[in-house]
Design a binder for these strands. Structure first.
Length: 848
RNA sequence: GUGGACGUGGCGAAACCGGUAGACGCAGCAGACUUAAAAUCUGCUUCCCCCUGUGGGAGUGCGGGUUCGAGUCCCGCCGUCCGCACCA
């Protein structure tokens, strides 16, 4: 009996063997075809979680497969190591963010190494180190010089107690998450990146990304939000002021019954100075506006300014001008015209303030149907619209735009939902913005030879507010332009900036510049990028933007960073809980406090039952997490890797279960037995020439072809099923030379998934070298063909029988064979079928 | 509200261009080996009916349709999940 697979020894042995051989170092000068496999790099929060394990196992499996197939593979790993959790740890536990982060990185790196991932550790980077962010500062200045970075006033969420800016997610019910203080909106002067300059390119580029999920492309498309319409000017009656509005429905202009301004609109604010009522209304809107999501229930509210605007198509028509809470300052022009009959919001508003509702678009044959409480937004022809009457909607839009342009009061235009990216953060743990503010010279870039601007580590978190702003000396510098005393910008860059170009730095990381264009372009774009859907919009959009921006300023010849994108599902687990009773919070228990059997679960501590709840994403608050380290010690890296690739399709959620990981561990041992079982001694006529096994050879080659195709499409679960079949077939086969060959072939196919097992078994079989260098098996086309096929027999589309026939048999022979089958004769009861449909080598359908 | 995805056994899932639904795994049941257990191996496992066999019927969320033939295509519902959310 063979020994059990000693995963602990094998993992250590092969991980150091790969490291010693430099097996995963990507060679910039390789003559082989290149491919770049990348998983989204982690934030170093402290520990690897199962979601990481799943993500990196998929990438690893692909990287190893590509390497075996002869590619020079770039498969790097690094750390997205700036961010708020480090600052929170500093505030809560008094540890320095840098120490906290670097300790976490060391721990997580060790965890990743124990999982045996084929990373090129020589290219490891950490965004919180000056060797990385210094180059980011240089690129920031490049973009500034190119006009793609600018400064403007912008509103932020300000926590008056913590004296800090809050992200939207940190504002809960209008209060700071930590202080509980009511959040104020403050206007600060901040840096912006001109992503809107690329709105067109970002949208058009999506069409070229065939290997992206449709879902993500659609989400980005909606986020960019292109609207085509008319921008025109309303003159305010009896005054010289006017303002612009944007509409996608210029055809409905004759249905207008009011105009409305956003509460933050400059004209509204100007009017408020002489109108206490309006000022109060604007203040009221601002109070309600902070809580973002529950706008749903909010009523349409308006304030009648008493002024009128002049209708652009007929200056005898005057429309009342309102300030209204549902008009957004940051979309379009912050002002609208209201056409109640054809816009639901306008209709709600008009009903509330008794404004006229005039239908101007009518579907064929329904011209005079009155609008009641539902606006009509469908197609139709124009009515009650003067020179537009009888035109369809599209023709009417074009006619109005043409008239506006020739008369000079408006123009056809495109409006985007996408807004410029504010990158200033009033935070410590981030990339310092390399700017010096001088009273005389304004915002002056830090000279290139003074980069990097190093984030000082001797800071205090004792007083509220930004440690950078409080630092006694750091911000005080001489202006590089005039030499007078000046101040550094004490803001840092949004962490999304760090992740917007790291994939380029992985491809090329010279000391003296962000990247070498020629070297980077050898690897880019990333062939396969793998990560969670939660980054479908922001990270992926920003990275695309940076790539386009670097392209525009001539630093990079690539326009899309990620040719292929895959978004994997989450790792989930059952929850275990006890209801605390009235007024007491539900208690959750972690899986290792629980005994689970088929029917229910009990708590180990007291032997009493607990409720088994829904299978949801692993989270600390529901205590349904499983620590990869515990699993690794108990079952080994290969079992974990095998399990996270099994069962669920990679894009769907994977439910973690003890039974599942145990099954995976059993399978690892099963494969080990195949390779390690005592083999007949070669020589003296025994053990060689034991004959052929064509059936097994066919199965082996079908599996090679199928597994190769499955891995190509990242369908790991299907490859896993095929490998089970192959193992099973080899186990059952009688000894033969085919069987002896099948085992190393199996090992090569399984190596990307369970690499330590594969190496160990490969060595045990006495195969030459390491399996990592053994290449990928190729399917023999001749063995993929079968000479016999099973043909199904249907009568009226229902399966009745089936039989074996020679592949490629002709119709007449097949028909004759079918008509002689007992069951067919019985079912037809003497009658001839009306029609016989023959699908070659597949089935015959008799229509009775 | 709006855009999208999905819905197949006890569970996770397969099923190519419309062509034998449930591969493969988990759980379960029965058996072999064992003093016993673990491990391992073999067999069964969609549901219902009966004349219990080389038998019959139903079946992919529900209701229609197209087709010789629909899990797959079309129309209408229901449900679940995700994104966006007053976008003019």
């Amino acid at each position: 009996m063979a020994d059990k697979f000693d995963f602990k020894a094998a993992e250590a042995r092969w991980q150091s063997a790969w490291a010693a051989a430099g097996s995963f170092a990507a060679d910039d000068h390789s003559p082989r075809p290149r491919t770049y496999v990348l998983e989204m790099f982690p934030y170093p929060s402290g520990r690897i979680h199962m979601g990481h394990v799943r993500n990196y196992t998929m990438g690893d499996c692909l990287a190893r497969t590509r390497r075996a197939q002869g590619f020079e593979v770039l498969h790097p790993m690094g750390w997205d190591s700036f961010g708020m959790p480090a600052e929170n740890a500093a505030i809560e536990r008094g540890v320095h963010p840098g120490n906290w982060t670097r300790d976490n990185i060391a721990a997580m790196r060790a965890q990743l190494k124990r999982l045996g991932f084929a990373f090129d550790w020589g290219r490891e980077l950490s965004t919180c180190e000056p060797e990385y962010y210094g180059h980011e500062q240089a690129l920031f200045l490049d973009l500034l010089a190119a006009g793609l970075v600018y400064r403007k006033d912008s509103a932020v969420n300000w926590d008056p107690v913590d004296m800090t800016v809050l992200a939207n997610e940190q504002v809960i019910d209008g209060r700071g998450w930590r202080s509980g203080a009511i959040v104020e909106r403050r206007r600060l002067n901040q840096w912006f990146m001109r992503i809107t300059d690329f709105a067109d390119d970002l949208l058009a580029g999506l069409q070229t990304l065939d290997d992206w999920p449709d879902k993500v492309r659609l989400m980005q498309e909606n986020w960019i939000g292109r609207s085509q319409g008319l921008r025109f000017s309303f003159a305010v009656a009896d005054s010289d002021s006017s303002f612009d509005v944007f509409t996608t429905r210029p055809d409905t202009l004759f249905g207008a019954s009011f105009a409305a301004l956003a509460p933050e609109h400059p004209i509204a604010r100007a009017l408020a100075e002489s109108s206490p009522g309006l000022a109060a209304f604007i203040a009221e809107c601002r109070a309600g506006g902070t809580a973002t999501a529950d706008i749903e229930g909010q009523d349409k509210k308006g304030y009648d300014t008493g002024l009128c605007v002049i209708h652009p198509l007929d200056d005898s028509i005057r429309l009342p001008l309102f300030v209204a809470n549902f008009v957004l300052m940051d979309y379009g022009t912050g002002a609208i015209f209201g056409c109640p009959a054809h816009d639901q919001r306008d209709l709600d508003f008009a009903r509330k303030y008794q404004l006229p509702v005039t239908r101007v678009v009518a579907p064929e044959g329904e011209a005079e149907t009155a609008i009641t409480d539902t606006a009509y937004t469908g197609p139709g022809r124009l009515v009650h619209s003067g020179f537009l009457d009888g035109l369809d909607v599209d023709a009417a839009k074009a006619t109005v735009i043409a008239r506006a342009e020739s008369a000079g009061w408006g123009e056809g235009t495109i409006v985007w939902r996408l807004r410029d990216w504010g990158v200033s953060r009033q935070r410590y743990w981030g990339t310092p913005i390399p700017i010096i503010h001088c009273n005389a010279c304004g915002a002056v870039p830090v000279p290139r030879d003074e980069l990097p601007v190093i984030l000082p580590e001797d800071v205090s978190f004792d007083i509220p507010g930004s440690p950078l702003a409080h630092h006694p000396t750091w911000k005080h510098v001489a202006c590089p332009a005039c030499g007078k005393p000046a101040l550094r910008d004490t803001d840092t860059l949004d962490t999304f900036v760090n992740s917007s170009w790291y994939f380029i730095r992985f491809a090329s990381a010279p000391v003296d510049q962000p990247f070498d264009r020629a070297v980077a372009e050898q690897w880019l774009p990333v062939g396969q990028y793998i990560g969670g859907v939660e980054h479908a919009i922001l990270h992926l959009l920003y990275a695309r933007f940076w790539t386009l921006a670097l392209n525009r300023i001539g630093r990079l010849g690539v326009t899309e960073p990620f040719a292929g994108l895959f978004t994997q599902g989450m790792v989930t687990h059952e929850t275990y809980s006890r209801d605390g009773g009235e007024g007491v919070a539900t208690r959750y228990f972690s899986p290792d406090e629980i005994d689970r059997d088929g029917s229910g679960a009990t708590l180990k501590a007291d032997g009493l039952g607990v409720a088994v709840g829904r299978i949801i994403k692993m989270s600390k608050s529901k205590r349904n997490t499983v620590d990869p380290d515990t699993i690794l010690v108990k079952y080994g890296a290969d079992a974990v890797r095998w399990f996270v690739l099994s069962d669920s399709p990679p894009e769907r959620d994977l439910a973690w279960s003890d039974a599942g990981i145990e099954g995976a561990a059993r399978f690892v041992q099963r494969v080990w037995r195949l390779a390690s079982e005592p083999r007949p001694i070669i020589g003296i006529g025994i053990g060689i020439g034991r004959g052929e096994d064509l059936k097994l050879a066919r199965i082996v080659h079908r599996c090679i072809a199928a597994i190769t195709a499955d891995l190509d499409r990242l369908q790991f679960n299907k490859a896993v099923a095929r490998l089970y079949e192959l193992v099973s077939a080899i186990e059952r086969a009688e000894p033969s030379t085919i069987r002896d060959d099948a085992i190393p072939t199996l090992l090569r196919l399984i190596a990307p998934m369970t690499p330590h097992l594969a190496e160990e078994a490969w060595a045990t079989l006495g195969q030459p070298g390491m399996i990592i260098d053994a290449g990928w098996p190729l399917a023999d086309p001749l063995l993929l063909l079968d000479d016999m096929v099973t043909i199904a027999i249907q009568i009226n589309g229902k399966l009745k029988d089936s039989f074996e026939a020679a592949k490629g048999a002709d119709r007449a022979a097949i028909e004759a064979a079918v008509l002689m089958r007992d069951k067919v004769v019985r079912a037809l009861a003497g009658k001839a079928p009306q029609k016989i449909i023959v699908v070659p080598d597949r089935l015959v359908n008799l229509v009775a």
